[in-house]
């Protein structure tokens, strides 16, 4: 790229606009919708040591919380575009767990993603209590 020649800057910028328009027009603005089978598959692929126990899926299918069977850890799964990201959550990883209405916010301080917000009608308080730092293991 020649900084003295504006055309060399213009071509990539026009190209980016064209590509993004083409992706949008062909249905590229989509998001993964999580269900139990998808979450279990991604857990098996990304966290093979994690034995999934009880699971709750976000009302919009944007995320899920999973308790470890026979353990105190949890996992969180959430949509990133049309793909899914999973993370193991130990108590020490949790910086903040907050419940506002049915919305459970999990902040781990993980730089690779922002806070995870899950809509969990009727389930939020129970899962917040399970996750909350300092809670005694059953």
């Amino acid at each position: 790229m020649d900084p003295k020649n504006p055309v060399t800057l213009l071509i990539p910028l026009v190209g980016i606009a064209l590509i993004l328009a083409a992706v949008w027009l062909t249905g590229g603005a989509r998001r993964a919708r999580l269900d139990r089978a998808l979450v279990l598959r991604r857990l098996a692929e990304d966290l093979p040591d994690f034995a999934a126990g009880e699971m709750v899926i976000d009302a919009d299918g944007a995320g899920a919380l999973i308790a470890e069977a026979g353990g105190t850890a949890h996992a969180v799964a959430f949509a990133a575009g049309d793909k899914v990201v999973v993370r193991r959550l130990e108590r020490r990883d949790l910086r903040r767990v907050a419940l506002a209405g049915d919305r459970l916010t999990i902040d781990t301080g993980d730089f690779t993603h922002g806070r995870v917000v899950l809509a969990l009608p009727g389930e939020g308080a129970r899962w917040a209590a399970r996750l909350a730092p300092g809670e005694r293991a059953p």
Binding site: I19, A22, V23, T26, G27, G28, A29, R30, D82, K83
Partner: peptide, 24 residues
């Protein structure tokens, strides 16, 4: 740029979504 546009078209024709907006 042209090849990316072509690949988007091919993916669309094959009904195999290859591109997601924010990822792209």
């Amino acid at each position: 740029i042209l090849l990316v546009l072509l690949e988007i078209a091919v993916a669309r024709a094959r009904r195999r979504p290859a591109y997601e907006l924010r990822d792209t």
